[in-house]
Design a protein around this nucleic acid. Sequence first.
RNA 1: GGGUGCUUAGCUCAGUGGUAGAGCGUCUCGUUUACACCGAGAAUGUCGGGGGUUCGAAACCCUCAGCGCCCA
Length: 862
Amino acid sequence: MSSSSPTGKELASTFNPADIESSLYSKWLKADYFTADASSTKEAFTIVLPPPNVTGVLHIGHALDQTLQDCLSRMKRMKGYEVLWLPGMDHAGIATQNVVEKQLGAQGLSRHDLGREDFVKKVWEWKAESGGAILDQMKRLGVSVDWSRERFTMDEGMSKAVVSIFKKMHEAGLIYRAERIINWCPRCLTALSDIEVDHQDDAGEFVQIRYGEGEQSIVVATTRAETMLGDGAVAVHPDDPRYKHMIGTEVLLPLVDRMIPIIADELVEMDFGTGAVKVTAAHDPNDFEMAVRHNVPFVVIMNEHGVMAGTGTEFDGMDRFDARVAVVAKLKEMGRVVAEKRPYIHAVGHCSRCDTTVEPRLSKQWFVKVAPLAKASADAVRSGEVKIEPEALAPRYFEWVDNMHDWCISRQLWWGHRIPVWYGPNDEVKVIGPDEKAPEGWTQDPDVLDTWFSSGQWAFSTFGWPEKTADLAKFYPTSVLVTGYDILFFWVVRMMMMSTFAMDGVAPFKTIMLHGLVRDQFGKKMSKSRGNVIDPIEFMDKYGADALRFTLARGANPGTDQALAEDWIGGSRNFATKLWNATRFAMMNGANVNGALPATSELNAIDRWILSRLSETLRDVDSLLENFEFARACETLYHFAWDDLCDWYLELSKETFASDSKANSQRVLGHVLDQLMRTLHPVMPFITEELWCTLTGGESLVVAGWPKSDSSHIDKKSEKLISTLQEVVTEVRRFRNDQGLKPAQKVPGRFSGSADVLEYASALRFLLKLEDKDFTPSASLEIGGIKIELDLTGSIDVVAERARLEKDLAAAKKDLQTAEVKLGNAGFMAKAPADVVVEIKERLAKTTSDIERITAALAALK
RNA sequence: GGGUGCUUAGCUCAGUGGUAGAGCGUCUCGUUUACACCGAGAAUGUCGGGGGUUCGAAACCCUCAGCGCCCA
């Protein structure tokens, strides 16, 4: 059987995604549909793609994030906006440098063997050869990004912007250099910001050590015994009665034989450990704070590799973890270990890139003073200029921006934006802007900037800032930022801070739409070690991009994680096949979009009903998508397409399509499919494009109009009638099933009752496999005022029928009781809204008549 | 320790005051003018426990228990 289209094209009998996806994507690129026009008079709709790492490959989280962005972009494009969805990549400082260093390591080389210049050259070579694999994978998903505007955080324009903003922030007093305790990775040999540190529960030890002798001794507790070599004081709480008398005195620090003071500071928790803590000013952030307050000296006892150095003890030259063991052993020997707990589970910081245990280290670094920036970022949300969706996640945002520490932005790496600060021969310090030259003989700071410093500018420097470009004017601020809540703090907050600063207080987006993480089918986090990682490419190969996209969008409830299983992607593929076959069937039956839709007065109730359901669906889906309710939008479309259209409309209309009076229905069906394909297109771009072009002969759904719900089509009367037909069909099917009739077995049957239902008697007969001929009824049913009589050749299964009726009777009695209780409740009658009371009264009447009918039927059964 | 969620069918989750829902899975029947990647029918829940507010609570409040995430 074939289905012909306006273009003479035919649909294959089975849907195979691989046949259409890549050629459709090429078609869209060739037609230049995704390239935005800054000179357009249309209202702009802008999204910047959260730039994936240049080292990255597409994982399921990207697939979700990008599917949602593509849905919004495609819908807005169809709605007539000038849509810019800007793609690009992040240079990912540490991650990328690690990749290239690893490659060098395989050849027995380190970056130092190459030298800075050649190493950076090598990284660029790596990028040209193997970087950005993710971009091609994104094309598989069908992303409608503007490739002509693709950016990279290290490209020329963005690099210039980085230098410009550094200078601007420095001039505003927002960037400074200071000696502080920072997170140090002894393997990557660089400083890390707070958010580049992952806290894990590690099995460590908790050791209590006695300092001093006799009366003048005090027991401190620590998880890092080796740092005692650098202690400058012991701290207690000022109100602690145990130690009050010792405040201001000194105790002997063992091993190094130094007298150190006992100080009082409110930071100390009396209930924790012994209530006395050692103060290692150069190796712990809290100790550093106390040391500053009490003038405790900073004693550095480790080098950059985490190796003990400069303590003047036997421990110099030992790795920090070996030193921990050795120091405890030695102290034990001396009888100074009062108590030990092992294992002691506590949170320990690890480098988020290489998992090495982070070492707090006193070091001179560049910082951003975040207080004013964070306040502006918080205010933008508090004032309503920026909306967080879902609103429930706003407190998390505030918790962060309201309590933010200064941001360490220097990294001791080679791959990244080099800090534009130059030092003169006499310790002069100067920030050199993009168009300036450093004086002769000066040297540049060797460090580079934190990757987030440049990606924080993604929402404006991608448009050409600091130049006053047409793109910037047209597309900034962006409309919505779509991203996972997991990078709210990493990236979103940085974008907010940098953008509001650079763009004169205008926040970078109007809405921050946060989605959750994709988890495995049991809701567990995906991880390589668990072996439960879902590869989006594999599943696109297997089920098609549309199936993956639909599954992800259907699971995307605002701000919450979603589980994903292969079976569910298979289910979405089944849905795609359903759409394919429904369209194929429709076209075999002459569905078309030629000319105007017939007036509703000329349509039968089935056509009026599907138009009514269509209008309601379009109305609901539009509002759901505008509110980022992707899951509910998909659910609504799924049930309209599968239940209303395929299971009921097509089945009820088969009779019509076989008759001579089918023209109106053919036009209606064409219209419904046309609108359905348009509405599904943002979620399932490939199959809808293929089906719609075949059905309508149109150029492309990418540039087709977004459907408007036609409220004049909403027809409650037809909905009521069709719902009665559905009830009749379902009940008779149930009866047939209970009676053991085969689905295809024809049975003589006839209807009597209200005329508007009887008008569709032949459609009912078709669905119920009832024959229209004279017979003596042996069974009868009554549903919704319609009487159905059937001939079961004289014998029916009385036991089965009795069981069925009794079940119905019990349900009806239960309903009756609830209704009676409510109506008999004076409080309910007095306080419940009128429409609820009416509803309950109707329910009472219906259940009463049902009970009478069922009771009579039971009595009639022999 | 601070913050913030979650607990509804076998599994994963919707559902914010008016008769408990979906997808997947399970059971039965079935190749009938698209589709077995299908159709028809069925089973399955004192909505974590307890208390309160209300005419009415899965939903609102309190409390207990369990689980999770973020931050320190």
